[in-house]
Amino acid sequence: MKKSGIIIYEDGVYWRFTTSGNVSIATAPSLSGPWQYRGALLPQGTKIFLRDDQDIWAPSISKRDNLYYCHYSVSYIYSQHSEIGVATSTSLEPGKWTDHGAIGFPQSLRYNLIDPYVFQEDPKSPTYFTFGSFWTGIQQVEMNDNQQLIAWVGQENDIQTIVGNTTVHPAVVEGATMHKFDNFYYILFSVGQCCREENDLVPPGDEYHIAVCRSNSSTGPYIDRDGKDCRAENGGTTILASHGDIYAPGGQGVITDPETGKMMLYYHYVRRSIGYTAEKFFFGYNYLDFNDGWPVVV
């Protein structure tokens, strides 16, 4: 459905951008907090209008030269009528962002325009934009230049599925993020059902959890640890699932710890002892160990 947010570290400060509240911005001196609310990225909301009860989900922050881009989703629960919008700024501060409205991806019955993420290995490499959930799964499109991040020009057939949802009993896949580590490209995504009421929980194992696939190329094909194709065979190796009081971790991202240089996984989750709805989400993080080429939560 939606990523909890994204973490940016700059000049000794952690910035967290989260779903709802017109993209809420908070800062902290460390991942453990204390987090201080700073304001809304889009205090007047978005130029995109779908219907009155729409919400702004899954902000994703990237930077090109001296300009920040915030891509976000506009949607509502259980809808495939969504849009991806973009705002830009020379600062991460609230009140400094210019909203450009929809980026221009075409509507399609085979995907949903939510959960954006921008990946570029280095400044000379191509930029890849991923989005999507439900339906056929996670989509990827190559961007030709930075202007495409604001106003995309292309055709639907330029958009390719890289993590699929196509078997007889498919699981929901959504909220993908891409990362390079050593010689592999990794795509992390959330699988299962999120944000249910206590009287409407799915069977154990079908709730939200975090999975990974990897490839020798940023465009795939991606496979899981068992060799299953992540596009055609619903592949995906679970790296974090419900355990003990922790329930339905997902909405994940990865950041490099500036002090240790290690990669850290961050995500939202709920505590069974407190409640299950999205309003009761907690923010969690763990280091990732890549000793055998596959990320393991430690």
Rank of each mutant, 00 (worst) to 15 (best):
C230S: 02
F189E: 01
V254C: 02
V163I: 15
S218R: 01
G236D: 03
G244A: 09
T256W: 07
T177E: 08
T219V: 13
N216L: 14
G227K: 05
T161D: 06
P249D: 08
G175W: 05
G253F: 08
D224R: 02
C213F: 04
N157R: 12
C194Y: 10
G227V: 11
N216E: 12
P221V: 10
I223S: 01
D226E: 10
Y186K: 06
A232F: 13
D158G: 02
I255A: 06
H209M: 10
D226R: 05
N234H: 10
I255T: 05
K228G: 02
V254W: 01
Q193M: 14
L201M: 14
A232M: 11
H243M: 13
D257K: 02
I246F: 11
C195F: 07
H209G: 03
I187L: 15
S215G: 01
A176S: 15
S190A: 09
Q252C: 11
G236M: 03
N183E: 13
P203G: 05
H169E: 14
N165T: 13
G251M: 13
I159Q: 01
I187T: 06
D200V: 07
S218Y: 01
D245N: 14
G235Y: 05
L201Q: 14
C230E: 04
D224E: 04
V191I: 13
V173S: 00
D200T: 10
E174D: 10
V212N: 00
T256P: 00
E198L: 10
H179Q: 11
M263Y: 15
H169Y: 14
S217W: 08
Q193C: 13
G250Y: 06
N165S: 15
Q160L: 12
Q252N: 13
G192I: 11
G253M: 07
E174I: 10
E233Q: 14
I255S: 03
T260M: 08
P203T: 06
T166P: 01
I255N: 02
T161V: 15
G175D: 12
N157V: 13
P203S: 12
G253C: 09
V202T: 09
T237I: 06
D245V: 12
N157G: 03
N199G: 00
V163C: 12
E259H: 10
G205A: 02
D245A: 07
T237E: 09
N165R: 15
R231W: 03
A241R: 13
S190W: 06
E233W: 04
G220R: 00
E207W: 07
C195R: 01
I255G: 04
Y208R: 04
R231C: 14
P170M: 11
P204V: 15
G244D: 09
L188M: 13
V168H: 12
K180D: 02
I255Q: 01
G227S: 08
A248Y: 06
S215K: 02
R214D: 03
V168P: 00
I159P: 00
V254T: 12
D158W: 05
T237F: 03
T177Q: 09
